[in-house]
Amino acid sequence: MAQAGVTEAKPAVPSMDGSVRRIRLFTALGLVFAWEIIATLGTVGVLYNDVVPHIWNIVVAIYEELISAGFYRDLGITFAEHVVGFIVGSIIAIFVGIWMGTSPLVRGALEPYLNAIGSTPKIIFLPILFLMFGTGIESKMAKGSLSAFFPVVFTTTLGMVLINPVLIRVGKTFNLNKWQMITKVYMPAMVNPVITGLRLGMAITVIGVLVAELKFADGGLGYRLGIYYEQFRIAPMYAIILIIFALAAAANVGMTRLQDRVNRHMAPTTTKGKKAAATASGGLGVVGTN
């Protein structure tokens, strides 16, 4: 009976996979078809004139973007703002997270304020950053740091709180000092939640930097998007949006792979390691905002 069950179950998996693939394919084709109908209606002036360009025009616009020198200048600016913002924000967040994780007093004192600001749209702080750093790339870097800070600080704190208490007791029995405890016990045990936080932080930093560029900038992909919108150049606007989505997805996939690799090489070190990863989107329950 069990044998029969196994033999019956085997073909079910490819069948499921096949139908899932078919659904995805038909959905994608349906979307393309619907898009082209709207685009055609727009071309003949019936619906949303020129607002929805033909897919071919978007493909051409993507190609033109990719071969233009201006695009790479703007990409470089956004990349620099993102990298600096992400690194600065993450480093500060990791230290604050460790501080909060090791001291219940600090955690209790800071948590309400971090939760409050963490659930606020960070873009609202842009005027303060413009006042402090000007409207150049420095303010975008600061915005990137602000965006990266919150997911990383929440996951680092959570990672510290959820460290297996046995590991901490072992460290104490060996009379490790605070620095040794951090480097030998806490940090190796926190790699997974910290990387989860970094992955989230990276994604939110991309959005944070681009949105800041859309408001005030003289370079960057967000600036480029804003210019195309102002000039009503719709196909290049779609092209930039698609390129940004692709780059954001690639960065996310890269961080996810890094996390998977770390997971494979690290023994489970938290009492509720899975929980730490699962709640990482909200840190200590806070929604990550751009």
Partner: peptide, 23 residues
């Protein structure tokens, strides 16, 4: 079929779509 797409859409910077809606 759609759960992966939904997760990807949730992680995507959808705020950047606002110029489209403005248009």
């Amino acid at each position: 079929a759609y759960e992966g797409w939904l997760a990807a859409a949730f992680a995507a910077p959808t705020v950047l779509l606002y110029p489209l809606f403005l248009v």
